[in-house]
Amino acid sequence: MKTKLVILAFALLTNFGFSQQIITEDLTVVDSVSTTPQKLNIKEKSPLRASLYSAVLPGAGQLYNKKWIKAPIALGLVGTGIAFSSYYNGLQNKYRRAYIAELEGKPHEYSGVLNAEQLAVYQDEYKRNRDYTVALTILAYILNIVDATVDSHLFSIKNDPDFTFKPTVIQDQNSLQPVLGMNLNFKF
Rank of each mutant, 00 (worst) to 15 (best):
P178D: 04
P72S: 05
I145D: 07
A140R: 02
T149P: 00
S156R: 11
L8E: 06
L77G: 05
S51A: 14
Q21D: 14
G17K: 02
A148P: 08
V146H: 11
P178S: 03
G59F: 04
P107C: 00
R96P: 01
E102M: 04
Y88R: 05
R96F: 10
N65P: 07
I69D: 01
K70R: 10
S156F: 06
V33W: 05
A98T: 03
R97Q: 03
R97S: 05
G61Q: 07
T80H: 05
Y122Q: 15
Y53P: 02
F188H: 01
F163E: 03
G61P: 08
P37C: 05
D160E: 09
L5T: 05
E102Y: 00
L57F: 14
S46H: 08
L5C: 03
L114R: 01
V113P: 03
V30F: 02
V30H: 04
D160R: 06
L136A: 15
G81L: 06
Y88V: 02
D31L: 02
P72K: 04
L12N: 08
F165Q: 03
A98C: 05
A74Y: 05
L91N: 14
Y95N: 02
S32V: 12
A71L: 06
Y99V: 01
A11F: 13
K166G: 01
N183P: 01
Y53R: 09
N129Y: 15
G112N: 07
L52V: 13
G90V: 04
K94S: 11
G76Q: 04
A71K: 04
L12K: 01
D131K: 06
L12I: 12
S32D: 06
S32M: 12
N115Y: 00
G90N: 15
S111C: 04
V121F: 09
S156H: 09
N129E: 15
L180N: 13
Y126K: 10
A135W: 06
P167N: 12
Y132E: 12
K70E: 14
K106R: 08
Q173D: 13
Y95D: 02
N41L: 08
P37W: 03
I100T: 04
L52I: 14
K187I: 08
A101S: 12
R128F: 12
